[in-house]
Amino acid sequence: MDKILRDKKAICIFVAPALAMFVLVLVIPVIQMLYYSLCDYAALTPPSFVGLANYKKLFFKDSTFRIALKNSIFFMIFSAVTQQVIGLLLAVMLTNIPKGRNLFKNIYYLPCVLSSAALGLLWAFLFNPKIGINNLLAKFGIEGPLWLMESKGFIVLPMWVIAFVALWQYVGQNMMLYMAQITGISRDVYEASYIDGASKVKAFRYITLPLIKPMVITSLSLNCIGSLKFFDLVYNMTQGGPNHRTEVLATELYAEGFNYFKYGYASAISVVLLVMCLVVTLLVKKVIKVETYES
C-alpha cells in the first residue's frame, strides 16, 4: 500500500494539470506584477524600471491610498467581528430551534449565491436619497441622511452602509460553516454534559466553542481575505466616492489601473494587497492555536 502511495510518477500526473494551469495563469502573471510594480508603466508605453519609486509615492504622497488602506482595514475588522459573531449566533440559534431550521437557513444564505454586482445595484438604489429608504422614512416624517454621500467622520457613513450590506450578503456563509461544524458534534457529548448538570450556556462555552475552533480559523481567514479583496459592492454602490472617501484597496487598484492606466502604480497596490492577505492569514493561524481534534 505504502509503495502505491509513494508512486512518484502518479503524483506527478495527478498534480501536473492543476499545477501547470496555476503556474501559467496565476504565478507568472503575479511575478510580472511584482516586476511592473517597480516600473513606470503607462499602459500603452513599454515599462521602464524605476526601482521603489511607486512604493515611495504610495506610502508617502498618496492620500487616497491612506484612505483606501484605512477603509480596507476597517472593513476587514468590521466584517470579521460582525460576521463571525452573528454567523455563530445564527448557527447556534438555528441548531436549537425545533422547526423551520432549513427554511431560515436557506433564506439567510440566499444572498451569498447571488451576484454582488446585481445586489450592489439594488442597494445603491435603495439608499438613493429620492427613491429608496429615505422615501419610506419621509412618510414617518424622518429626514434620512445621504447614505452614500455623507462624508464626515473618521469612517464615513457610506462605508458603514457598505459594510452593513456586505454583512447582509455574506453572514450566511459563516453561519453555514458553523452550522456544519456544530451539527457535526455528536449529540452524546451534549447529553453527557446535561447529565452532569451542565446548563445550555455552559455546554456552549465548554463544548461547542472549543470544538468549532478549527472552523473559526477557516471562516476567519476566508472572511479577512474576502474583505481585503472586496470590490463589487463598493464599485457598484459608490465607485469610491464622494472624493475617494469610500475607496478600498481593490477599487483604488482598479481606478489607478483602468481609469488612469498607471499599471506600474496599480501593480504596487496589488503587491500591498497580496502581502496584507498573506500576513492576515498567517496572523489568524498564529493567534488561534488549534488543539487537534478528531471526531
Partner: peptide, 19 residues
C-alpha cells in the same frame, strides 16, 4: 503544495488582468 494552492485564493483577479 496544499499551501501553495491556497495562496491562490488570495490573489485578487484585478492584479493579473493586464498581463
Amino acid at each position: 503544495m496544499h499551501t501553495f494552492f491556497l495562496i491562490g485564493m488570495m490573489v485578487p483577479v484585478h492584479c493579473i488582468l493586464i498581463p
